[in-house]
Design a protein around this nucleic acid. Structure first.
Lengths: 108, 108
DNA sequence: ACTATATTCAACCATATGGTTGAGTGATGA
DNA sequence: TCATCACTCAACCATATGGTTGAATATAGT
């Protein structure tokens, strides 16, 4: 559990990896396409993707020679809930918060 | 900005530092008192506190020979907002979210 | 003045991180 | 079949991280 938080937060601490996550928000992508906008070797991107994968933030599905990367936003929830223990984000009210979201974002 | 996210997420990636933040949730503490429950040198804790401080997650106020550490939960907000860009946490609805919190938690 | 307390500094260590290059594997398609 | 494409592996490098110890600094109390 705490290990998972370690991995998630560590994964998010790198700007390249955060950028990758943002890209995957749009659509699933192949490793080569993920790498394209970065001024960095494919190997480096491959490593970043592994780190994101081990943290559970993405899943990778190899189809033929192409490995498709898919965002797994649920993995952020653990971190999000942890943070809600601080300041104005009270974990007690999570249920109410989710009801609120359902009402506000019916098709999200 | 992105630099700040780097520092905040990196600071949160260590279990000792997360534990320290949880402790400071209760009350402000002196460095020695923060260190007490950990099986680790005072120097190590001092370093952790510096990392938390540089990330803006705590402030340190030296009064005499004692340095008081204070939680700064607002620093988590940047990270929290960033995460809301994923999954069910839509940044667009932040204002509505804050109105919701004000209504649900009048004295938080 | 002296001693104890609170904290930091400096130097060091082992391991992790983020990057590189060059070679290797395996699927695709002409 | 054979070249190409998508990706990974292995080895390496520089720097960062998380920890240690022993000495240093500075305030507080007697």
């Amino acid at each position: 559990m705490t290990q998972n938080l370690d991995l998630v937060f560590a994964a998010l601490a790198d700007p390249t990896r955060r950028a990758i996550l943002s890209m995957l928000l749009e659509d699933d992508m192949a490793v080569t396409d993920v790498a394209e906008p970065f001024d960095m070797s494919l190997t480096a991107i491959s490593k970043h993707l592994n780190i994101l994968s081990r943290a559970g933030l993405i899943s990778q599905d190899r189809r033929g020679r192409v490995k498709w990367c898919k965002l797994e936003p649920d993995a952020l929830k653990v971190a999000s809930v942890w943070m809600q223990g601080f300041g104005q984000f009270e974990p007690v009210h999570l249920d109410a918060f989710e009801r609120f979201l359902k009402a506000e974002l019916p098709d999200a």
